[in-house]
Amino acid sequence: MKAAAFDYIRASDIAEVCQALNDGGPDCKIIAGGQTLVPMMAMRLARPSIIVDINAVEELQGIGGDESSLVIKACTRQAAAERSPEVRAKAPLLAKALRFVGHPQTRNRGTVGGSIANADPVAEIPLVALTLDAGLVAESAGGAKNIDISGFFHGLMETSLAPDECLTEVHLPVWNGGGVIGTGFQEVSIRAGDFAIVAAAVQLVVDESGVCRRAAVALGGVAPTPLRIEATAEALLSSDLDAETVGEAAHLAANEIDPGGDVHASAEYRRRCARVMVERAIIEARDEALRRAANP
């Protein structure tokens, strides 16, 4: 399990990354944390001719933003995001999901942007990014561009990023106003720390009378990409999130999806787990919001 030979470029700034990608052609690949790329290379399922290492690019590290949006630079370590008070305050759903991502050793190396660009349909971070309707920024030699995440995931580990583009920033909108936020992240995996069989992410806003004013729901592991489940989110709006509404909303999610099966889980098992995970994530989010409303 040794990678095929490749050439290596360590970039020191974004311009260098873009230049290298531009010069390197389609067999040129960015390495960030490498937690997925390196195993793929070891199995020779991936064999880039050049890898461009972005770990030394300081512009790609850090967490910032303003009142309306949390900005995570693409090469920020998952562990750094996990420890960040800012992430906990502004994107509590991401903070919650990060605990499900691999293990300490992989989070110390794996990056937030790398996981999104890698687009594994059962990975937690792309799922959260989709749930929160993240804005992405990518750069190439031609300049920077904004990418709407709704069009970003194209298929199994495929995205709209062109081979010469580097994901640079992830903008997670901060939900302000209208009530109290609650988040839910639930997944079923066979072992702790494994990729999920199915994962559900939910973020809600509940007003002072307990009515749901805003909702976002998404599922991972049920399609070649993470999926937003709008029907479920809509079903929750204006309700007081009673058990019956939540149950029906979760049921809608199961009807929206057409999962595949594999050695770990049949398609039917995935579908049924999707309903259960969505239901539990909504309840988790609702209860958290109500708790926070009661103890502001």
Partner: peptide, 24 residues
């Protein structure tokens, strides 16, 4: 395992534990 699952190759890199099979 050389694919980042077993942790036998764990070392500390810049102060943090990582898997040394997943880095060049």
């Amino acid at each position: 395992c050389e694919h980042g699952v077993c942790g036998a190759c764990s070392v500390i890199f810049d102060g943090q534990p990582i898997r040394s099979c997943l880095m060049f």
